[in-house]
């Protein structure tokens, strides 16, 4: 311990030293995890005093020492819940920090099923520690290994959304971190993430009306031979993501004959002619600029329509039909 000499009787000197002290301060050593295990904390006091003749004396105390004991604690980050398309894997980046003051090893496990669905969960090491899952990061992990005090370990909880689940289905996966430092739960922790499946959900509703009799659209209509019927097919995406490459096929036209030039596709659900007239064949036209759009053709009594933004007369051209979109397809037939 440094011995302290008195400047108490020299106020000016004290003032100057105070000014100097204000300029340079050593940065205090900070350990987020606390003072390391086994550190000795010592303390020793000194005193100065005088006798009646102003002779100075000094005294030094005994030294006390306490030792820092091992403390085992842990923290884990809590990534936000996420969603993903069906048949994909959602990667949750996690960081485990040894917040104790001694080296500790933490076992890692993930279990699904708390929320109803039980989707596959796996743990992968975040090799480059960037919190973003890269294609090459396929090393399965079940332990942080020995982590020094304050050290961190990064990994992913990977939840696989099955192919055959409906939009909006969820899974709760719980990560469990179990420290080996102490027997109790002081260095154990958990975190749960809820994964939501994203999928398109197309609905098709077909309505019919008797044009000859001036009827309105309904689920059914009555007609005599030679009368004209108009069909309205409503296609809607009630799911959470876009449906890609939507093709509508309607072959259910027995005992009727298609009325040439009667097909319309568009956003208007009440009147066919408010929409875009189709050319019946499978060529020509410009690519659709909106979801409430399509290109159709008729062949052998079967109506085929490619729907959504980007649709052309070709089945192979990429097209998208966003969540929440609705499109109407109208055509007329004559009863044989």
């Amino acid at each position: 311990m440094p011995r302290i000499r008195s400047h108490a009787d020299l106020p000016m000197c004290r003032f100057i030293v105070a000014l100097l002290a204000a300029f340079l301060l050593p940065a205090a050593t900070a350990h987020a995890a606390g003072t390391p295990y086994n550190t000795s904390i010592t303390n020793q006091a000194t005193a100065s005093y005088k006798d009646s003749s102003a002779n100075s004396f000094e005294a030094t105390s005994n030294a006390t020492t306490v030792t820092v004991t091992a403390v085992y604690t842990v923290s884990v980050t809590a990534p936000s819940d996420a969603s993903g398309n069906t048949n994909t894997v959602v990667y949750y980046p996690y960081t485990v920090t040894n917040t104790g003051n001694n080296t500790n090893t933490f076992a890692l496990s993930a279990a699904s099923g708390a929320g109803g669905n039980t989707w596959a969960a796996a743990l992968y090491y975040d090799a480059n520690g960037d919190g973003v899952h890269d294609a090459g990061e396929t090393t399965v992990t079940d332990s942080t290994g020995a982590l020094a005090a304050d050290a961190t370990y990064k990994f992913f909880v990977a939840v696989t959304i099955p192919a055959a689940v409906a939009s909006g289905q969820t899974d709760v996966t719980t990560l469990t971190v179990t420290g080996s430092g102490d027997a109790g739960a002081g260095d154990d922790t958990t975190d749960s993430v809820t994964t939501t499946a994203l999928a398109p959900a197309l609905t098709i509703t077909k309505a019919v009306r008797n044009v000859t009799l001036g009827g309105t659209f309904d689920a059914t209509a009555s007609a005599a031979p030679a009368q004209v019927l108009e069909y309205r097919i409503t296609v809607a995406n009630g799911g959470s993501i876009s449906a890609d490459n939507v093709t509508l096929t309607d072959a259910d036209n027995a005992y009727t004959t298609y009325v040439a030039g009667s097909m319309y596709i568009g956003a208007n659900g009440s009147t066919a002619t408010s929409n875009t007239l189709q050319d019946d064949d499978a060529s020509g036209g410009t690519a659709c600029a909106s979801d409430a759009c399509g290109h159709s053709s008729v062949s052998g009594g079967t109506v085929t329509a490619y729907l959504g933004t980007g649709a052309t007369e070709s089945a192979s051209d990429a097209r998208t039909f966003a969540a929440g979109s609705t499109v109407y397809v109208y055509f007329q037939v004559t009863v044989d």
Binding site: D9, T29, I41, N43, Q44, A45, S52, A59
Partner: peptide
């Protein structure tokens, strides 16, 4: 930390000044 001081001498101690460092781990 409690520091006990005692004058075991024969005359009074004047202008006594006790200094104790705050341990850097605290």
């Amino acid at each position: 930390y409690t520091i006990a001081y005692r004058n075991g001498g024969r005359t009074e101690a004047r202008a006594a000044r006790i200094v104790d460092p705050v341990p850097k781990e605290t």
